[in-house]
Design a protein around this nucleic acid. Structure first.
Length: 923
RNA sequence: AGGCUGGUAGCUCAGGGGUAGAGCACUACCUUGACACGGUAGGGGUCAGCGGUUCAAAUCCGCUCCAGCCUACCA
């Protein structure tokens, strides 16, 4: 049979997915067993604009390992795929396309624009779905979903209306994070805090009766007042009294409507008790500002005075509400100064306005100090523009009451997080949850199901017809002209319903009954808030049950240097390139075996190479079998594995036991999401036990010219083990295992639905494993002796073995031929006790003692000289004395224990080394 | 500022109260009819530091020092 020597993944990997997909192996409906268990997962829906990145590669690989494992274990497995409409991201993609033709979405109008997005989706969307096939994801394509599908859109409306009816959704004017880049409100989670090197501006506000004329010497007075320990923001000068505030955003002063200070400072006898009852005058504007007392003001920060801009800062907003201050919006949605500000500043961009305000204050002598100041500024995750806190009319979800059951469900273990430490992230967020702004001023997304009457009444309903019914119920005219809400919902509003909306909710479908709750959710920790927590809340709210029993948080994939991958750093690794270079199976195996409980994983080239080599090993082991077992493979009789095997010898019992132990371990490891351990177990079994020992031990039988009953049995057993190993490997390496499995005798159409090898405890044999370990140790010791004394393989050796443990006698006798061949021993003698031997190498283990006569094989004088030379060389090279001493010790041990020629010679060597050590000590 | 997670071989990382592990790298030997993406035999560690609990600590508990991440309304 023609099989290439080295595994070529490219030849193999393209071939199998079309076969699997077209035959429908991945749908749970294909499982003919009516009593089959159920295992379900929903995929974290990637953005429809998305491309496969390393995070997906890991996330999908782990899910696929679970899905394939459960499927092969007999479960009815549903792994449901789909994509997210990704409101902002998708709208941006299409807008960018339009921009190339100099068209804006406003030119098109809403309806046309949305049509364009759908067109885009049909032609260019969902690239990632194709890439999932390259990866091998065994998802059920017949149940693919999109968050804007009709069914899912219905679910969104249903949920919105029900939450609204219960008072869990409300509409109101509140401070939101406004993204001037996207022209929409965004949620707290979409704001990314970035460290920004800015300035802290110290500005003087006159108290009472400001003239507006420039003042002089104020900066010096301020500096003088703050020398040493003393800190004061109250300046008393011949030109009047001033208070000093510190701010990072001087342009917002145009909207100041108060000055705040800590009640302790304002108390009679307090630091600033003197200002009580007075007012400050806002420079550049002239507005009188009252002083308000608020605990939130830290006495220690700045001067202790805070300018309050209720319309442009979340804290100030809260203070504004507490103290019933005026909310003056001086920055608009375009991030430009509004008409509420003095004419001079109107229309200026917020950063230009900052410059102008600073210049004007300097001219007035009121800018007292500008210092460098690094602080955190919220930025819009998508557009990268600094967020502008603004008051605006938006829709919100009241989260507290929804969060409570979600916390409880994890506390009492209905949903488990793996690794367990991630629950802290979850609890921390839910326990401090804020209301969620869900309205977005975009066009692509689920339109909020609300209508307005000309009188400004708001009706929330599933559709316009219902809205009119509800009008009638309220005693209003159902025939009035209704205006539909323009805003759409945050993308996450629909994705939070994913575990049940994809199964048909609100209809009570069979799928919903059968597959909800799902078994496992595999996802990354950065969307625990965005997605996992919200799914928990919604699942509990609308299904009355948790959406998943286990949440497995997979690691963040870092680059080989351990850095986060990011476009700006240019260190992003494209998984498709990795698949191409090492093979998809190898990449999958590398990812699986790197998946430990940690929160991050750095992708090492060496790990990929090692996985590629492993694939090659599997290929070649199979190649060996195919090349040597023709007679068995052509046997027209089906191979009855369990009965047609001849009485096994030790090695057979051992390998069967090892296999079953590993099958058990792999099963247990996967059941507990210890992916790396499953991978490690199978790797070492296949490579070390099966290839390095079992195949090597079996070679004389397998390659024998004349078939004997025993050689036939060994071949059968080898095919049997190989086939079972391929099944064990299949969840991690689906392509190569299918390819090879198809070439071996097998039952069934595809390895995808073959039995995952559950272990057979009847084949576990602790005694065989113990005995074989002794044999392995013995062979290793003998090889070690040969290697230590540089004896070529062609030189035959004699060996005498004295058992220290009686049970080993029979064992060794039974496998003498193996020992002789693998250690290249010509004459193996079992003796009661080792005789005194001069010039022999010895080795001792717990169960045996062995001696190999070296007389005539090596030149002792030369050997001694060689050792001495080594020692000298080591000493010469040494710069770290301690380490060299350790080496000298080793040589000494070698001299004393291994080169047991005569006591005198050993002593002589010891003496030499002693002298060398003395020299080292003297250094 | 709080919180979390780590510090184990040259590198990347498992493990975790009882003899310290893997992959890669390293040394020596081997082109033996499955595989040089291979085989055989090796070398290499004060398990960050200090203290405590224990017959026994890399492992459990405190503290310290480093590194990374997350959360936060210090203007």
């Amino acid at each position: 049979m023609e099989i290439p020597k080295a595994y070529e993944p490219k030849e193999v990997e393209g071939r199998w997915y079309p076969f699997w997909e077209s035959r429908g192996f991945f749908t749970p409906d294909a499982n003919p067993n009516p009593k089959a268990g159920v295992f379900s997962m929903v995929i974290p829906p990637p953005n429809v604009t998305g491309y496969l990145h390393m995070g997906h590669a890991l996330n999908h690989t782990l899910q696929d390992v679970l899905a394939r494992w459960r499927r092969m274990s007999g479960d009815r497995v549903l792994w449901l795929p789909g994509t997210d409409h990704a409101g902002i991201a998708t709208q941006m993609v299409v807008e960018r396309q339009l921009a190339q033709q100099n068209v804006s979405r406003h030119d098109l109008g809403r309806e046309k624009f949305v049509e364009r997005v759908w067109e885009w989706k049909a032609h260019s969307g969902g690239t990632i779905l194709k890439q999932m096939r390259i990866l091998g994801d065994s998802v059920d394509w017949s149940r693919e979903r999109f968050t804007m599908d009709d069914g899912l859109s219905n679910a969104v409306k249903e949920v919105f209306v029900r939450l609204y009816d219960e008072g869990l959704i409300y509409r109101g004017e509140y401070m939101v994070n406004w993204s001037p880049g996207l022209h929409t409100a965004i949620s707290d989670l979409e704001v990314e805090m970035k460290q920004v090197k800015g300035k802290l501006y110290h500005i003087a506000y006159p108290i009472g009766g400001a003239t507006g004329a420039p003042v002089e010497g104020l900066a010096e007075a301020y500096a003088a007042a703050n020398e040493g320990e003393a800190k004061s923001g109250l300046l008393r000068t011949p030109q009047g009294d001033f208070i000093v505030v510190a701010t990072t955003r001087p342009e917002t002063m145009l909207g100041d409507t108060a000055i705040a200070l800590n009640p302790e400072d304002a108390a009679a006898g307090g630091r600033y008790g003197a200002i009580v009852g007075r007012t400050a005058t806002l420079p550049l504007v002239g507005r009188e500002l009252p002083f308000v007392q608020d605990e939130i003001v830290e006495k220690e920060f700045g001067t202790g005075f805070v300018k309050v801009t209720p319309a442009h800062d979340p804290n100030d907003f809260a203070m504004g509400r507490r103290h019933r201050l005026e909310f003056l919006q001086v920055i608009g949605k375009d991030a430009k100064i509004t008409d509420a500000a003095p004419e001079k500043y109107r229309g200026l961009d917020r950063y230009e306005a900052r410059k102008q305000v600073v210049a004007d204050l300097e001219a007035l002598g009121l800018m007292l100090r500008i210092e460098d100041y690094t602080h955190n500024v919220g930025h819009c995750q998508r557009s990268g523009v600094a967020v502008e806190p603004l008051i605006s009319m938006q829709w919100f979800v009241r989260m507290k009451t929804l969060a409570e059951p979600a916390i409880q469900a994890v506390r009492d273990g209905r949903t488990k997080f793996v690794p367990e430490s991630t629950t802290k992230i979850y609890f921390n967020w839910l326990e401090n949850i804020q209301d969620w702004c869900v309205s977005r001023q975009l066009w692509w997304g689920h339109r909020i199901p609300a209508w307005y009457t000309p009188d400004g009444e708001v009706i929330v309903a599933r559709d316009e017809q219902e809205a009119r019914q509800r009008l009638a119920q309220r005693g209003l005219d159902p025939a009035v002209a209704l205006r539909e809400e323009e805003d759409v919902l945050d993308t996450w509003f629909s994705s939070q319903l994913w575990p049940f909306s994809t199964l048909g909710w609100p209809e009570e479908t069979d799928d919903l009954k059968r597959y909800y709750p799902t078994d496992v959710l595999v996802t990354a920790f950065d969307i625990i808030f965005f997605w996992v927590a919200r799914m928990m809340m919604m699942g509990l709210k609308f299904m009355g049950e948790v959406p998943f029993r286990t949440v497995y948080i997979n690691a963040l994939v870092l680059d080989p240097e351990g850095q986060k991958m990011s476009k700006s750093k240019g260190n992003v690794i494209d998984p498709l390139e990795v698949f191409d270079k090492y093979g998809t199976d190898a990449a999958r195996f590398a990812l699986t075996s790197a998946s430990t409980a940690g929160l991050s994983l750095s992708l090492q080239e060496s790990k990929l190479e090692s996985a590629r080599n492993f694939a090659n090993k599997i290929w070649n082991a199979t190649r060996f079998v195919l090349m040597n077992c023709d007679d068995i493979l052509k046997d027209p009789e089906p191979i009855d594995w369990e009965t047609r095997l001849a009485p096994p010898e030790l090695a057979d019992l051992w390998i069967l036991s090892r296999f079953n132990r590993v099958a058990l371990e792999v099963h247990n490891a996967l059941a507990e999401f210890r992916f790396h351990e499953a991978a490690a177990q199978i790797y070492h079994f296949f490579w070390d036990d099966f290839c390095d020992w079992y195949i090597e031990l079996s070679k004389p039988f397998v390659t024998a010219k004349e078939p004997t009953p025993q050689s036939q049995a060994v071949k059968r057993r080898m095919i049997y083990l190989l086939e079972r190993s391929l099944r064990l490997l299949h969840p991690m390496m689906p392509f190569i295992t299918e390819e090879l499995w198809q070439r071996l005798p097998h039952k069934g159409e595809t390895i995808c639905t073959a039995d995952f090898t559950s272990h057979n405890s009847a084949q576990l044999d602790g005694r065989a494993e113990r005995e074989m370990n002794m044999v392995i140790e013995l062979i290793t010791r003998l090889r070690n002796i040969r290697s230590t004394f540089n004896i070529p393989p062609s030189t035959p050796l004699q060996a005498q073995i004295a058992p220290l443990d009686e049970s080993i006698r029979g064992v060794i006798a039974g496998v003498q031929d193996h020992i002789k061949r693998l250690a290249r021993i010509e004459n193996l003698q079992l003796v009661e006790q080792l005789p005194e031997m001069k010039g022999a190498a010895r080795a001792v283990s717990a169960s045996f003692e062995v001696a190999v006569p070296l007389e005539g094989l090596i030149d002792f004088e030369k050997e001694r000289a060689r050792l001495q030379q080594t020692v000298e060389k080591l000493v010469k090279e040494s710069d770290g004395i301690e380490k060299r001493l350790a080496n000298a010790d080793f040589i000494a041990r070698a001299a004393a224990e291994v080169v047991v020629q005569t006591r005198e010679r050993a002593a002589e060597l010891q003496d030499q080394i002693g002298k060398l050590r003395a020299i080292i000590d003297a250094l």
